[in-house]
Design a protein around this nucleic acid. Structure first.
Lengths: 206, 206
DNA sequence: GACCTTCCCTAACAAGTGTTTGGCAGGCTA
DNA sequence: TAGCCTGCCAAACACTTGTTAGGGAAGGTC
């Protein structure tokens, strides 16, 4: 009879449906207004309840943000790791990573938008150290892929690799700010066109 | 003796040096913390004064933001208009616009970062309608240049022009989030490498 | 029917927010 | 010396913020 958990919320395994709905709602509002500019009353409005009621499900506004970002990053890395484990060549790895990224944007549009807007400031706080950790793995993964491609002669060797990395990274993720699921282009189609631009350029070859 | 201006601040022509310094300070803090998350007390701290003292120079926190963005956009369009008036071909126009953009990032790094973070929400407010206006001109300019290039056969015709526009736009401006003046690369060098990627791709040609 | 759990409401609190008002010191002008 | 303008401080204001505590209704279980 010792150590019986008294709190039913926080990040326990149990995740009632309502909890997920509220997180999705919060993510939408965070993405649209920015985390700091979003009041818990507005989240509650969108969820059809009052501000105080949110605290039955969550410990704090910050813990909502943390859970949203954690969930997204966990799933993102599941996808990335599957790609990396496949042992593809550099070009195919890059294509698969980009495609996977656009699929994640399709699934976690709001979370990606939040991540892109707030991650820099948040990464400093201890609570959000996992953001910095993820960013390091991200950079390492991409740089290795690009450098391997240069070494194998499939990517140009006259470009600054870090600069290339930044352009690839930014252009992929910033798509979350304009992408709308169910729109004209599927994630795969966007990935295909983006890869075509990135690999072959937009100029006509003579 | 009628209509004598009683307020010395607001956006009158007179712009004492101190005013510019304060705006630069505010821009740095806005860019780093986000507009909403920035308190006037923190701006005042960075400027070595107290919060209330800011109101001798400015009407409100919002008016600081407006002046920062207005100043940046005015100078940006001065540069763009000079390029467009030159009557260059589509490829040369694109190269000049991109180069000019990186120069603006070099000069107005903080303002660009703010613009990129906040412009979407702000554009809805009447006070910041000039942001939406600028965005329309921006899109029109880029789309025309790209379409002209496709028509003249210098840009590929198998790419979605709007998608291309978004990628170009985002990748250019997002650079403001990592660019640091006085760093390893000059604006011109970054522009050169970026244009090389965008026009010719990163893949090695066989 | 009694009890318990789930989920939300009501009402309030303390801290932090942008902003205003009045005043004061220093330098310039007459 | 007297007056004025510039630039800032000191102190407060009204409001919004995230968060808490107690209670109550609905539904299931014994």
């Amino acid at each position: 009879m010792e150590g019986v958990p008294t709190k039913k919320n926080s990040q326990v395994t149990a995740a009632p449906a309502r909890r997920g709905e509220l997180l999705a709602t919060a993510a939408e509002v965070f993405a649209e207004q920015g985390y700091k500019a979003t009041t818990v009353r507005r989240i509650a409005d969108h969820a059809g309840m009052l501000a105080g009621s949110l605290y039955y499900h969550f410990d704090s506004k910050e813990s909502m943000l943390e859970e949203i970002l954690r969930t997204f990053l966990d799933e993102l890395w599941d996808g990335y790791d599957a790609v990396l484990k496949a042992g593809l060549g550099p070009r195919e790895t890059l294509e698969a990573l980009v495609t996977e990224s656009f699929r994640e944007i399709d699934r976690h549009r709001a979370a990606v938008a939040i991540y892109q807007k707030e991650s820099r400031q948040l990464a400093g706080q201890e609570r959000f150290a996992f953001l910095a950790e993820s960013q390091r793995r991200f950079e390492k993964t991409w740089l290795e892929t690009l450098e391997r491609g240069v070494a194998e002669g499939v990517f140009r060797d006259d470009l600054d690799v870090r600069l290339t990395y930044r352009f690839v990274r930014d252009t992929v993720w910033v798509a979350a700010s304009w992408y709308r699921p169910g729109g004209q282009h599927s994630p795969e189609e966007i990935a295909r066109q983006y890869l075509s631009m990135l690999l072959d350029g937009i100029a006509v070859r003579e």
